[in-house]
């Protein structure tokens, strides 16, 4: 990896963090409505995965999607505008926090029904297999999502049809307030792949370089026509499930322990210790991101609401 690559990954993670901090403030001000699921703490997972992708690789995820949206190249302007329901959001203000997508960036969405996007991911992969393209579909989902039937149907199908999918479970220890041991028959989520004879592994989801390397290897395996691969990234969300979560199900000490493992802090240390860049250079990125995000908040606030007519557009595809 070149110096610029280190700086770029660092910048992406800091950008996600700052955008989401602003999103939380905007939510508290009543400007963001609905649910707001923050990705804070999990930034290394999507950042590492996207760093390993080729442009033809598709991404799809659940509702905790702001991080991935920024990684694939959507701007802070677009993300914050969507959160404010503005016409300048990538989903024109109709989707909100849980429904970000960009076909241009091969990002097939945030999806809000738990597990429902896994069969869709199988279909995306089928499309590429059918057409003889070498793209891999990277499908991200939570630990909780592996308990719903959709997961098992999709994962099984991917093996039976040898679909080019990389299944990535973001194991952040909880599905809302439910720990894995209270909801899953197996304690390591990757074990579920065993039942479908899909090769699998675990990676430290707080270490962006480890995620990137694991993803690169897995993508190469899938791209070579071997069928699906299953990667489990161990991570943690520092914030509540959504805004307003009373968090009665976990102790502050536990959160604190994980926060000492901050993916941004870890990467920063790795960069400076490995002399890939100086602390000063990283500080400069920090400052630039703060400015960028402040400008994006302004952009989003000043952006227009969708026109009233927008209520009735995009229901069906317009006849050419």
């Amino acid at each position: 990896m070149k110096k610029e690559d280190y700086l770029d990954l660092y910048r992406q993670m800091v950008l996600i963090r700052r955008v989401e901090e602003q999103a939380a403030i905007l939510y508290q001000e009543g400007k963001v409505g609905g649910f707001l699921h923050l990705y804070i703490g999990q930034e290394a997972v999507s950042t590492g995965l996207v760093a390993a992708r080729l442009p033809q690789d598709r991404f799809i995820t659940a509702y905790r999607d702001h991080g991935l949206a920024l990684n694939v190249g959507l701007t802070a302007n677009q993300v914050l505008a969507e959160l404010l329901g503005k016409a300048t959001g990538m989903s024109k203000g109709k989707g909100g926090s849980m429904h970000m997508a960009s076909v241009e960036h091969n990002f097939w969405g945030g999806h809000a029904i738990v597990g429902a996007h896994l069969p869709i991911a199988a279909g995306l992969a089928l499309g590429d297999q059918y057409a003889g393209r070498d793209g891999v579909t990277v499908c991200m989902f939570g630990d909780g999502a592996t308990n719903i039937g959709y997961f098992h149907e999709a994962v099984n199908l991917s093996k039976v049809w040898k679909l080019p999918v990389l299944w990535v479970c973001e194991n952040n220890q909880y599905g809302m307030g439910t720990t894995i041991d209270r909801a899953s028959a197996v304690s390591e989520i990757r074990q579920k792949a065993e039942g479908y004879l899909i090769p699998n592994s675990r990676v430290d989801g707080m270490d962006v370089l480890a995620v990137k390397d694991a993803a690169a290897e897995a993508l190469a395996y899938v791209r070579a026509g071997n069928g699906p691969y299953f990667l489990e990234a161990i991570t943690y969300r520092f914030q509540g499930h959504s805004m307003g979560d009373p968090e009665r199900y976990r102790k502050p000490e536990e959160i604190k322990k994980w926060q000492e493992n901050d993916p941004i802090g870890i990467f920063r240390k790795a960069i400076t210790a490995g002399k890939k860049a100086t602390a000063k250079e990283l500080d400069a990125i920090d400052a630039a991101v703060i400015e960028e995000v402040a400008a994006a908040v302004k952009f989003a606030e000043e952006s227009p609401n969708p026109a009233p007519e927008a209520l009735f557009t995009d229901i069906y595809v317009e006849a050419a």
Binding site: G33, G34, G85, K86, S91, G93, K94, G95, G96, H99, N305, P306, P308, A310, L311, F312, I315
Partner: peptide, 16 residues
């Protein structure tokens, strides 16, 4: 309700 999937934007949603 207006015959649309409900949008996120507050004004549009209330219109529907």
């Amino acid at each position: 309700q207006k015959e649309v999937p409900l949008p996120y934007n507050r004004e549009l949603e209330q219109m529907a």
